[in-house]
């Protein structure tokens, strides 16, 4: 079972929900796919160790063989390779590593080199939650290859794999959601929360992933998020109030299910509810 925690708007509580859900269920794998700023471990405080490097292929042009025809530069949709009167220049940070330039080169002047864009880390030692996280190197623009490689480590051995997605609706989010069984969209009952929730709903519907909404800080703002969910027939999985105790624990980096009674069970029930939704869907 693979569940992604996503949201259109940033700062709605994805990481809080992902970490608390993982702890409540136990024997869980938690993958922090927000590789530009992974922060699940602020709450778990595991010792992390490097598991592997993430590399991308980049073209290497043999100046002896190149006859400056420009086919490589014309082919590249990302402008990562430029053909000039005196030579060819490669811009590695724009390169998506597709290998097309090497294929179209009539002189076979292009071979591929690799460069590191990030790393994958894993809990050095775990008993309850097996945390994996991607870390994009500073200054690198492309998060998606790190996310794809991180997801290759999803294991069938655990109860559940929980994916903490980056915010928004762009490429890194699509990469995080690919292949998921279910998506929990975390939002808040504010005009921004509603606006960005609608964008996120469009994405998960296009991807064909079953989903539900979790309303965080549910007693602020107004009722429009709830009215929207009802009118769109979207299940509301849980409401987490704007509670001072939760905020204090958060500020200390303590997952609230470990301190506030009753919440562990609520997360377990939410998971059971999701499993039921999926089995009903499968039966239809």
């Amino acid at each position: 079972m693979k569940i992604a925690i996503a949201s259109g708007k940033g700062g709605t509580g994805k990481t809080t929900i992902a970490v608390n859900l993982a702890i409540s269920l136990g024997n869980a794998q938690l993958l922090d796919c927000d590789v530009e700023e992974p922060n699940c471990n602020l709450f778990l405080r595991h010792d992390m160790e490097e598991f592997e490097d993430v590399t991308l292929p980049v073209p290497l042009v043999d100046k002896e063989k190149c006859d400056l025809c420009g086919d490589c530069a014309n082919f590249c949709q990302y402008n990562a390779i430029a053909s000039l009167p005196s030579g060819v220049m490669v811009f590695p940070k724009l390169c998506h590593g597709c290998g097309g330039c090497a294929l179209v080169c009539p002189e076979n002047a292009i071979t591929e080199n690799t460069r590191s864009i990030g790393i994958i880390e894993r809990s050095a030692d775990w008993s309850h939650v097996d945390l994996w996280q991607g870390l994009l190197h500073i200054g690198e623009p492309m998060a998606s290859p790190v996310i794809h490689q991180l997801q290759e480590h999803i294991s069938e051995d655990n109860n559940v794999a929980i994916i903490d997605s980056p915010p928004g609706t762009a490429c890194p989010v699509i990469a995080s959601l690919s292949g998921m069984d279910y998506c929990i969209l975390v939002t808040e009952p504010t005009p921004f929360g509603l606006h960005d929730l609608k964008l996120a709903v469009d994405v998960v519907r296009q991807l064909g992933i079953p989903f539900g909404v979790l309303i965080n800080r549910s007693d602020i703002g107004d009722s429009r998020v709830e009215e929207y969910c009802v009118s769109e027939n979207i299940p509301i999985l849980m409401k987490v109030p704007n509670n001072r105790e939760i905020a204090v624990l958060y500020s200390k980096g303590i997952p609230f299910v470990t301190s506030l009674p009753g919440w562990n069970n609520r997360f377990v029930h939410m998971f059971a509810n999701i499993c039921e939704q999926l089995s009903t869907r499968a039966a239809e």
Partner: peptide
């Protein structure tokens, strides 16, 4: 790339 801003709800188009 150099001018890219980080923001909680930013769109990251890559």
């Amino acid at each position: 790339q150099g001018g890219k801003q980080r923001n909680g709800s930013s769109q990251k188009n890559n």
